[in-house]
Design a protein around this nucleic acid. Structure first.
Length: 562
RNA sequence: GGGCUUGUGGCUUAGCUCGGACAUAGCGCCGGGCUUCUAACCCGGAUGUCGGGGGUUCGAAUCCCCCCAAGCCCGCCA
């Protein structure tokens, strides 16, 4: 795929150039032609005002000029006017070129860019299992990571471990003072949540416990060996639990970066020293930044009056390290971090470092209200995975009773994963959602399994077909519609990497599956003869490969049968 | 009180960055399609004040202003 150039994009660029030369207008952006054409221009409206002529007349005149243009002829562009609209219709040459790329492994991969990106996601506090809110972060982050790799970026994915926060101190206090036995079969993160919830109940009853928690925090910041060891032990155990959950979700981090390391290695102290020198610094009892001039009404506190650092200081140290080692820094964060993330970005700029690019996602809540680890009000990702696999297994058993149990379990695992990942990634991160069991367990239409099913169908046809000669040709409306959708894939990858909107890829995969399903019902493949059979098989091979690449970029298994 | 985000058929949702030709799809509803390459599917139908009101424009779901509603944030928590 190295050096692949999108045939559609090449043509679009030439049309824009010709349009620009023919009109002298700077802004000649093309719009989607919808049902009328592949591309369209509304430039006639703009010109009408300047030339005091009707837009339709101008469109007509431009058509006459452009139809003689050899550059447009060379790339197979047909131009015609429809009232004020100038419509461009491409011949099938670009589809042929796209199909030739689409049958090859790795279709959609873009040219290597030589840019190093660090992407941080999930980074949940290790005080209880990942719940359905956290995994929105994981799935957005992991999908973006896959897109970035496909788009040709060098990438490292990091999990920032908040191992010295108040929550962890509360966990440690709980383990020191309450019943801390792990139940039989209890996962580490669930165990920690149980102790954390119990500890919070105790604190509610007896607020003086907070003093003991504060002491733990001071000890850990000072590096008291016994305390550090206790914090590390519980955090590690929780992360072990997370690792299992994340693996089930097909989410992978390259590196876990521990917050406390930035105390130990002196980075935090160094960043505090630099911050002190900023004109916005207020170094009194606390060290804080006054970012009023940038529109922030509250103070950005860096160090407490007892001399300990707050989260912001360590986070600045972490980001400074990332800034020094990577070309681009991207964080996936919940919407509750919007303000502090903006303050962090602002401060990074003041320090002369790269400010992170941030992907924010809105909250996932339960029908009965927002989730809370502390109150024990959450649906854990592990529960969701268990339920969905059970449901998927029942479904596979009904549909494919002839398969042995192991195969059905394996399919159910992939289908369950698809259902979860797709359900979460399909909606724009900007939108808050309410977790709904019924919807999560639905495997029909606009779901991951629906797309997997389309892929499995294509596989089934190819398997039955045996070997065949590739024939790059599209004739019928269904064939053309399918080829057009396949041709869009590389530009979708490019756009997602640019806009950081992974749901666009989800929509694309679904639309490709839709169009293939329609094709499937209208056009015979295996029963067609000679060249018709070969060109349709080529198309099926292309769509199978494109669906596979799209699914895998979504972190979903492209299974051959289901 | 201030800030950020969201508001699109009964429900869920795309489009909004960069304004264009009858607003995208799913669920649900109504009616069809499995001796035919996997029916986790397909085809047809009904359903819309694009939260409300102003404005800009030849043209607004999209841009600007005001208002309403929901969520989040405004800590020497993370």
């Amino acid at each position: 795929m190295e050096g692949y150039e999108d045939p559609f994009k090449i043509r679009k660029t030439i049309i824009v150039k010709v349009l620009h030369e023919s009109t002298g207008e700077q802004d000649v952006q093309l719009v989607d032609g919808g049902e009328h054409a592949d591309l369209a221009s509304t430039i006639a409206f703009t010109l009408a005002k300047k030339q005091k002529t009707s837009p339709a007349r101008i469109a007509q005149d431009l058509i006459t000029i452009m139809n003689k243009n050899p550059e447009l002829q060379a790339i197979g562009v047909h131009t015609e006017a429809n009232g004020p609209y100038i419509n461009f219709t491409l011949d099938t040459s670009y589809l042929i070129e796209s199909l030739q790329a689409a049958v090859k492994p790795g279709y959609g991969s873009l040219t290597k860019k030589g840019i190093r990106v660090v992407l941080e996601h999930t980074s949940a506090n290790p005080n209880g299992p990942l719940h359905v809110g956290h995994i929105r972060n994981s799935i957005i982050g992991d999908t973006l990571a896959r897109v970035f790799r496909k788009a040709g970026y060098g990438l490292e994915v990091q999990y920032y471990v908040n191992d010295m926060g108040r929550q962890i101190a509360i966990v440690v206090w709980g383990f020191d003072n309450l019943d801390n036995t792990q139940q039989v079969g209890e996962k580490e993160d669930a165990h920690i949540a149980r102790v954390y919830i119990a500890a919070n109940r105790e604190i509610e009853k007896d607020p003086s416990i907070t003093q003991q928690v504060n002491t733990l925090m001071q000890l850990v910041e000072r590096g008291d060996p016994a305390t550090v060891k206790k914090f590390r032990r519980e955090v590690s155990r929780c992360l072990d639990g997370f690792t299992v959950t994340l693996k089930d979700l097909n989410v992978k981090h390259d590196r876990f970066v521990w917050e406390s390391d930035f105390i130990r290695n002196g980075y935090t102290e160094r960043i505090i020293a630099k911050i002190k020198k900023l004109p916005q610094a207020e170094d009194e009892e606390t060290l804080a930044l006054d970012l009023k001039e940038f529109g922030f009404t509250n103070k950005y506190v860096i160090r407490r009056s007892d001399g300990t650092s707050v989260y912001a200081a360590r986070d600045l140290a972490y980001h400074t390290w990332k800034s020094a080692n990577f070309d681009r820094v991207i964080d996936v964060l919940g919407a509750d971090h919007k303000l502090i993330a903006a303050q962090l970005q602002c401060t990074m700029k003041l320090l002369g470092e790269k400010a992170p690019e941030i992907v924010h996602f809105e909250f996932v809540s339960l029908p009965e209200g927002s989730m809370s680890t502390r109150a024990g009000k959450f649906v854990s990702s592990d529960d969701l995975i268990t339920q969905i696999r059970k449901r998927a297994f029942d479904e596979v058993t009904v549909r494919r009773p002839e398969l042995d149990e192991e195969t059905r379990k394996s399919i159910a695992k992939s289908v369950g994963l698809a259902a979860i990942r797709y359900d979460i990634i399909k909606v724009t991160p900007e939108k808050s959602t309410v977790f709904d069991w019924k919807e999560a367990l639905d495997f029909e239409r606009q779901s991951g399994p629906y797309i997997q099913y389309a892929h499995a169908r294509a596989c089934s046809i190819l398997e039955k077909a045996g070997s065949f000669s590739l024939c790059y040709e599209v004739k019928t409306d269904q064939e053309i519609a399918l080829a057009k959708e396949i041709a869009k894939f590389p530009s979708v990858i490019e756009r997602v990497a640019e806009d950081l909107h992974p749901h666009v890829l989800a929509t694309y995969a679904r639309e490709l599956a839709d169009i293939f399903n329609t094709f499937y019902h209208y056009e015979q493949v295996l029963k067609s003869e000679a060249q018709v059979r070969e060109r349709r098989l080529t198309l099926v091979k292309s769509v199978q490969n494109t669906l596979k690449e799209a699914l895998e970029t979504l972190g979903i298994d492209a299974i051959n049968t289901m």
